[in-house]
Amino acid sequence: MAITVSRPKLNWSERLYLPAILGGMAITFGHLKNMLLGRTKVTMQYPEQKWDSQMPDHYRGAPALVKDEGGRVRCVACQLCEFICPPRAIRIVPGEIPLGERFAKVEKYPEKFDIDMIRCIYCGMCEEVCPEQAIFLRKDYAITGYTRAEMVHDKEKLIEIGGVMHGLVLKWNEKK
């Protein structure tokens, strides 16, 4: 059933429309004036101004491999992140650490560690699942490239992004 909507009765000045038009033009002119006088806050001019300094600690940017204070890449190539990764962005080729080296008891290290940044969804599950505190989501967010190959972060790139992380548990340093 159709519902009849009662229309409001307009008085003659409302029916003339002109006061409404002039009021509208006054509003738009006010916005124009405030913009010209710099009173209105506008969008940040992105490449010149960035919000990086105000970024919260829990920000999830590009995943990266970190080094500890000793300069050791902490990844032990357990491949848990590779298995948990929902978009399957991570590819790890494990290698063996030869006997006689200081961290020989770790046994494995990543020979290759690739993260396809086209696939990565920045979910942070790799960081959550990592038993070695080796992979962290850093604050890099502008990941760009001209080709698909450029968008794959290899081990060097990941270590470069990751940098050195302080205050991690150094469980392999103790003599056991």
């Binding site: 738009t28 916005h31 124009l32 405030n34 913009m35 010209l36 209105t40 506008v42 969008t43």
Partner: peptide, 10 residues
Amino acid sequence: RVSALIQDRL
């Protein structure tokens, strides 16, 4: 430009 300024853009 003017439309942007009226709409609080640049």
